[in-house]
Amino acid sequence: MPESDISGVQDVTSPRVVAENLTKVFVTKRNAFGLPARRLTAVRGVSFELRQGEIYALVGGSGSGKSTVARLLTRLEKSDTGRVLVNGTDWTLLRRSALQKQRRAMQMVFQNPYASLDPTSMVVHLVGEPMIIHEKLARRDLDARVRALLDDVGLPSDSLHKYPHEFSGGQRQRLAIARALAADPDVIIADEAVSALDVSSQAKVLNLLLRLRRERSLTILFITHDLGVVRQVADRIGVLSEGELVEEAQADALFDEPTHEYTRTLLRSVPIMGRWR
């Protein structure tokens, strides 16, 4: 068993993120005494790992628990069982201040860029905030760094003093990605990050994520319901159904020979370009 290296050097073959036996039960109804009356198991014993530099797609319909998994990984929500290891550190054991420091390593891009960017914050603060928090960066150096990031995600670098509402949906999602990059993360979780976008801006954001993965050897967890998108970007795929991981495989293998019945149903239902009626 190769335990994590004592010298602190990362073993290149060890996974970036390990999710182990994650379970989350929500109380959906309480009785007159405030005690749980009805429970919903959103995630049940989910385990998987993200390897360095791969794009892992977590696929599932609404209510499959895929967004809950993202919230459990990032510790926005506490899991009822299991562990989350990021670069070998168990996030479930961390206290708040330690967790705040660790969070740099795993960033999240949310589905709705209209809701995930604070409407009262200017671009320079939105994008620069992770650097202020984690690098204690001076205001003077911030502008240049933010400009470089905006440039990297294909936004005009003179938009430092604009507000989110001055951007289109696709551009806002680039802002969100720039902000995630500002933390210099090892892992990015994209939770339905292109679902709300039009096809043409969706294609641009997907291409951007693919390029960033190449250039920065990012590890990406791509959470989506859109199998077409998954086909374009994923190296490996996990299929979630009713809170359980029912199938996991290399992307090509999963599309060519799905084994679980749910995966087959899913693939049969997807409309395909060029399959005329």
Binding site: Q100, R103, Q107, M108, D118, T120, A176, R179, A182, A183
Partner: peptide, 24 residues
Amino acid sequence: TFVDAARTIGASPMRILRNNILPN
């Protein structure tokens, strides 16, 4: 969501109160 987003970048509760909650 922008409060969740602030938490995931590692912002402390006081920072979130000052930078996100107060202006809003």
